[in-house]
Design a protein around this nucleic acid. Structure first.
Lengths: 106, 106
DNA sequence: GGGACATGCTACATATTATGTAGTAAAATC
DNA sequence: GATTTTACTACATAATATGTAGCATGTCCC
């Protein structure tokens, strides 16, 4: 699964590449599931309820992006870089509670 | 396109619903393209390079989530709520530059 | 009033991506 | 050496996105 360019972008600007990566199905959920501690492949699979095929593919994307790494001892975990990204996302948790009161998304 | 439940989640927790919405293809890009000013349907379509079918579907998702609204005078724009979400995302812009130096994602 | 244009949006055949289920291979544990 | 746990792959089916064409409404302009 080799791609020559950033999906959906001709600019190659980092923010576009990042939004593209984060916009792939299950990527945000995977990062979220790893927020507290390392998780095993099957744990992640069960937690998000996706097929092993796609869990594996997305973990590969995240590892290539240096956001996630596999520690054989403990499982998949966020890298230092991945941890930084997660911290940027943490405010979403609180905000989502407020948002849920206004909108009821499908 | 009616769904009974939040995709990929049985909990219904707001953060899961939010991550699900933001994880749909083109959603993050669409929000990003509206960051500065309202954009027309075709502008958005051209900017992100997706098909009108899916642009329309994602705009519908975003409108239903009260993050985006259509002003006939100026085009699609972020709601107050959508603006709040965007502000939470702005740090990503700077961070992505740093990230790009370390990882070269496909 | 009639043509040109911009608007949001739909139709639909094709291509891409995800699912669901089964299974492989290697290492650890009993 | 058999069972269990581990990451991961195969592959047929289903869901989703693409690409292209076009519709319907409104406004501008002569």
């Amino acid at each position: 699964m080799v791609k020559q360019r950033v999906r959906g972008s001709t600019t190659g600007r980092p923010i576009m590449a990042l939004l593209d990566l984060l916009g792939r199905r299950w990527v945000l959920r995977l990062v979220w599931e790893m927020r507290d501690e390392p998780r095993r492949f099957r744990e992640l699979q069960d937690a998000i309820g996706a097929s092993p095929t796609i869990v594996n593919a997305r973990l590969a994307d995240l590892r290539e992006a240096k956001l996630v790494e596999l520690d054989p001892e403990s499982g998949y975990r966020l890298t230092a870089l991945g941890g930084e990204l997660l911290r940027l996302f943490l405010p979403l948790h609180i905000w989502s509670e407020k948002w849920a009161k206004v909108a009821r998304p499908k």
